[in-house]
Amino acid sequence: MEFGDTVKVLRVIPLFAKLDPTKIKLIAFASEYLTVEDGEELFHEGDQADGVYLIDAGTAEIWLSAEDAEVLVGELSDHDVIGEMAIFRNEPRSATIRARGTLKVLRVDADMFLSVVTQNADAALSVMRILSEKLALAADRERELANRINELEAT
């Protein structure tokens, strides 16, 4: 994908939508446009976290390892952000990301991502919103699971 198109992609991703154009161009220039073929991994649980991925097109599956098997816990699609948590926490990847069909992503280097997010209030707010949504989602899940356990114990 050409540089100019990359800038357009970044513009529609909520996280970067409010950045000034120069910053977006800088991110676009420093980013890598990656193609991940069907079934290939973008990264693996436990890998060092070195960047954030933005989905341009395609579907990414989130897999968690549990005991001996892997469990599909969710999926992400266009304009979603992948892998920002590991960057903030400075920890290895907490899940494995695999492409379903051809997945096209932009990879933004960890340092570049952090410098943008820490220097721009709007971007920081966007990150908080994304993280809050994930937190709310996790809380919902927990509630659901707790209910189910209760039901099982009741029977």
Binding site: T22, K25, L26, F29, A30, D111, M112
Partner: peptide, 20 residues
């Protein structure tokens, strides 16, 4: 022109100069 557009707002010793 592109480089000026991208990098002229960065502080002079920013690591991105070296990297990008």
């Amino acid at each position: 022109t592109i480089m000026l557009d991208l990098f002229q707002d960065l502080p002079p010793d920013h690591e991105f100069f070296d990297r990008y």
